[in-house]
């Protein structure tokens, strides 16, 4: 039998199944914690750190990624404090600086309150979220791609950089990649490091009601738990 536990997220008492993560429990209840590397049917590797929350234990709070934090009885979680908002905005800003050419990254940055980017643009084509790697490993069991190198050199690649014949050419790695959503043609270019915010009218909501789910492009195309919930 599935055991239920009581957790308190942003003041709401939520019953969640033991073994689910705080992120899943929050989304299911309707509290959107921004997240990028988490995909509902894959296990999380906590690469993007966008889903940070404050986990309050005995009056002290730890900032930790909610996609790998399992619910426990009596847990107290805050997803929307000043501290979290500040940290999250900074993380999102770094993501945009690393890879501004993706609508998904732009959306999530806007969602996290980024309006201008203080870091130099790197124009990379990967944010190392690991979604492609998890997909290939867990769903297709192909292990045709993975992380290679460390530190600055870390990147996603085939073994020895050559597509192996056990790659099934299923294309799911590409489908899950946030970099495949073309950017809007607003600014967000070197020299004009701010978001145009003309994106979707919905996203304008981000201004008025910060930290609520804005049904972002990212969630739609990548099966954010909320969209998945509606379909099934």
């Amino acid at each position: 039998m599935l055991q239920q536990v009581n957790v308190n997220i942003d003041g709401a008492n939520i019953r969640a199944t033991r073994g689910t993560t705080v992120l899943d429990a929050a989304i299911e209840y309707g509290i959107c914690i921004p997240h990028l590397c988490h995909v509902p049917y894959l296990s999380s590797i906590s690469a993007c750190r966008l889903c940070i929350v404050e986990h309050v234990v005995n009056g002290r709070s730890n900032v930790t990624a909610s996609c790998t934090l399992n619910v426990e009885e009596g847990m107290v979680i805050l997803t929307n404090t000043d501290k979290i908002r500040r940290l999250r905005r900074n993380l999102a800003e770094l993501l945009v600086a690393q890879a501004p050419n993706s609508r998904a990254i732009q959306d999530i940055a806007l969602r996290c309150g980024v309006k201008e980017v203080r870091y130099p643009f790197r124009n990379d084509d990967c944010v190392l979220c690991g979604r492609c790697v998890q997909m290939c490993t867990e769903v297709w069991k192909a292990r045709a791609i993975g992380f290679v190198g460390r530190g600055k050199e870390r990147h996603v690649d085939y073994p020895f950089g050559i597509r192996p014949d056990f790659c099934k050419q299923c294309g799911s790695c590409v489908q899950l990649c946030p970099m495949t959503i073309p950017p809007c043609d607003g600014p967000m270019k070197p020299g004009e490091e701010y978001l145009c915010r003309k994106c979707e009218s919905q996203l304008m909501l981000a201004d008025e009601t910060p930290d609520h789910c804005v049904w972002c492009k990212l969630g739609e195309s990548f099966g954010c738990g909320r969209y998945v919930g509606i379909k099934s």
Partner: peptide
């Protein structure tokens, strides 16, 4: 061990 894993580990450690 899958070759990807071997390559990942070998390329990780200096």
């Amino acid at each position: 061990v899958p070759i990807m894993e071997v390559y990942r580990v070998a390329s990780f450690y200096t």
